[in-house]
Deep mutational scan, measured.
Amino acid sequence: MASQGTKRSYEQMETDGERQNATEIRASVGKMIGGIGRFYIQMCTELKLSDYEGRLIQNSLTIERMVLSAFDERRNKYLEEHPSAGKDPKKTGGPIYRRVNGKWMRELILYDKEEIRRIWRQANNGDDATAGLTHMMIWHSNLNDATYQRTRALVRTGMDPRMCSLMQGSTLPRRSGAAGAAVKGVGTMVMELVRMIKRGINDRNFWRGENGRKTRIAYERMCNILKGKFQTAAQKAMMDQVRESRNPGNAEFEDLTFLARSALILRGSVAHKSCLPACVYGPAVASGYDFEREGYSLVGIDPFRLLQNSQVYSLIRPNENPAHKSQLVWMACHSAAFEDLRVLSFIKGTKVLPRGKLSTRGVQIASNENMETMESSTLELRSRYWAIRTRSGGNTNQQRASAGQISIQPTFSVQRNLPFDRTTIMAAFNGNTEGRTSDMRTEIIRMMESARPEDVSFQGRGVFELSDEKAASPIVPSFDMSNEGSYFFGDNAEEYDN
């Protein structure tokens, strides 16, 4: 783990906690998980779902989305002020799938948001429990990260689609708070800032007046979040320049895209947490497990152990491969979309394939898809080993990566060399080191050039047997250095459309 220093740990961010010791953190995270579980059980009762239907990941996603929508204050306010045809701002819903006479049927349900809020609060001892809501947002974000390569979004903001390893959390809503900021990748933060800068260039009043003052505060806050992700002084200094700019424009845009590229080699610290679907927490609570009393951590053995003992089902389209669908969801559960496939294969105990080789589309089923041909199958979400999630980018030494994705962002704290394609990355730096950030740029390029592919990161860190909950005997895996390590390699994943 990167030293926490003055930073709060993510469990504290996750639970809005002030400084807590490890036991208190485990208890408050457990409380959050228990609340999600209780809410899910109650919703299944309301909807009269069978046990099997309640364990269907598509039903879980609909129920999670309903509660997130019920608590989305800004959108609710907007919907009330701008009524649109056929949208009731006070209601929320989605597809629920039921097994009827041996076939899967889709039923569109509609609930009062007020009623959903009441059920959620009741499951969370009367609190709004925003930490639990954020947790579900991060699960949705991790699922998107594993399912889609955001080529269009990258290109629109002047970045290269091969930089997708920097895009963790790119679909997280803005209201996801400190826990959300911690899991956002460098590219995601750059993209958010670039969008602001572009608006400022096109709209003279963007930075002016009372609204402009708020915009400015948001801009500086985002700059500080991004600065905190960088691990070298030169990158941090460049972020200070971007933040202090009187009138952010093209120079800042250039600096930010430069920094994003540099992060492929001088990786930023991005938190990883295993956020599971509500249909995993519900049955665990129903079986009598007391998360608050037992304590829970999002970055240790607990999620692995929970998945070892969970039964989750998914709808499967006619030509999809259930094992591939399982891999997709497994990666999402562990926030591992940008991790090295060699490491993932070792931990999972079966070969993890790149996205383009998977015969599976996303987990969600569109409303126009034919239910007649839908089957369902068990998702295999178990693992051979477990490993500690990392909050750091690993040290800054790398190795060759593949054509589709030119770097990785480690999820697990496991000893290995970190793949990246130096030639491709360095070719993108057209040696432009003039301007006010020239000395920093020169320094950053120097550090990137001296990074050695064969150097090892996370020295001495290994994986653990599932029986080793105290992480007492690390097993340090050895990897084939020459092997392909990137998930979005030469990829044809669908595009994420909101």
Rank of each mutant, 00 (worst) to 15 (best):
R317Q: 10
L68H: 08
L358G: 08
Y289Q: 04
S176V: 13
L259Q: 09
K325Y: 04
D128L: 11
G431V: 15
M159L: 15
K227L: 00
F488V: 05
I119H: 04
D455W: 05
M371A: 01
S383D: 07
T378P: 01
D160H: 10
S176C: 15
K470Q: 09
C164Y: 06
S392K: 03
Y487W: 10
Y10N: 08
R8K: 01
F464C: 07
G34T: 13
N370Y: 15
F489I: 13
K113P: 01
D480I: 10
D455I: 12
A472G: 15
T6L: 15
G295R: 11
T157G: 02
T378R: 15
L353N: 06
S482E: 07
G288R: 09
A153L: 07
R246Y: 03
P248N: 02
G212S: 07
R422G: 09
M191D: 09
T390E: 01
N309Y: 07
M191E: 03
N319G: 13
T171Y: 14
R216I: 12
E107F: 07
S274N: 03
D72S: 00
T350L: 15
S326I: 08
T171F: 01
L298C: 09
L307P: 08
K7R: 07
G102V: 11
R150C: 05
G295L: 05
S141D: 02
P303M: 08
R342L: 02
Y296T: 04
T390F: 02
D145N: 11
A451D: 14
G169Q: 06
Q20P: 13
A129V: 15
K325D: 05
F489A: 02
S314A: 12
T171K: 04
S383W: 04
E192L: 11
M189T: 12
N309G: 11
G282N: 00
S141M: 09
A182M: 06
M32K: 11
I444K: 09
P410V: 04
L344P: 04
T157Q: 13
T442V: 15
E339L: 00
T350G: 08
S274Y: 07
I445R: 02
G362M: 09
E443S: 07
Q409T: 09
R204G: 04
Y289K: 04
M440C: 06
L133G: 00
P322D: 08
E80L: 13
R441I: 10
G180W: 08
Q308C: 11
G93Y: 07
P173M: 04
C44D: 01
S407V: 00
F253R: 04
A387H: 01
T433F: 14
A2C: 01
A237G: 14
K229Q: 14
V352Y: 09
M440H: 02
I217N: 13
P474D: 04
S467E: 09
D255H: 09
P410C: 03
N125A: 13
G180T: 05
D145Y: 11
V194C: 05
S367W: 07
V100T: 13
L307V: 13
S287T: 09
A493N: 04
S141E: 06
S310H: 04
R99I: 10
I388A: 05
N321Q: 13
G212V: 07
V67L: 11
M238L: 14
I36M: 15
T130E: 07
N397D: 12
A471T: 14
I365G: 09
E80A: 14
V29F: 11
A27N: 05
F429G: 03
V299P: 10
N397M: 12
R446P: 03
T360E: 01
N417K: 05
L172A: 13
D421V: 09
Q235Y: 04
N205R: 02
R26C: 02
T151Q: 07
R150V: 03
T257V: 15
L61E: 02
S9D: 00
H272I: 02
Q231D: 10
V270N: 12
S262Y: 12
R261N: 10
A178P: 08
A401S: 15
G93S: 06
I201E: 04
Y111M: 11
G462I: 03
D203K: 01
T360Y: 06
